[in-house]
Amino acid sequence: MSDGFLGAFSDAHRERLLSFARTVSFPAGTRVFDEDDPAQRFWVLRHGHVDLDCHDPARGALVVETLGEGELLGWSWLFEPYRWHLGATAQDAVTAYEFDADPVRAAIEQDARFGLALTRSVASVAIGRRLRACRIRLLDLYRPTDTGRASAGGEPR
């Protein structure tokens, strides 16, 4: 793996964050959290994948994004009202660092440098990248069109 959420930290701040961690495992299909539940924990995935979903009464759980190794699962614990915006299910067997939100939030309040580093990492690595990716998906770039890649088998513009 080339990088990940923890790769955005200095050694000292990564060590500080990991001091709050415990290792957990989820079998495939485990419901990790539900939309609108209190966001009291978060995870950094070490192995496996987790699907984020939104429930639709007619269509069930609609997967909107998959998270994998090294990625942060959950950022709603950092911002009020501390409730999940989406649901999450383990796509396969998952191993992760799990953190309780309360002591980490307390550490953020007590140590401004650590708090800034953590907030920056969540904002840039998790929220920023996902927002950029989401915006690209909104463009529906791969839809069939007469202005597709000509040299890749489409048609000249």
């Binding site: 793996m1 994004e65 998959t66 994998g68 090294g70 690209i136 998906r137």
Partner: peptide, 15 residues
Amino acid sequence: NGDVGVVTTLLGRAA
């Protein structure tokens, strides 16, 4: 039952 998301999100999992 695979991944959902734009291709750039896979970069973090590449070796």
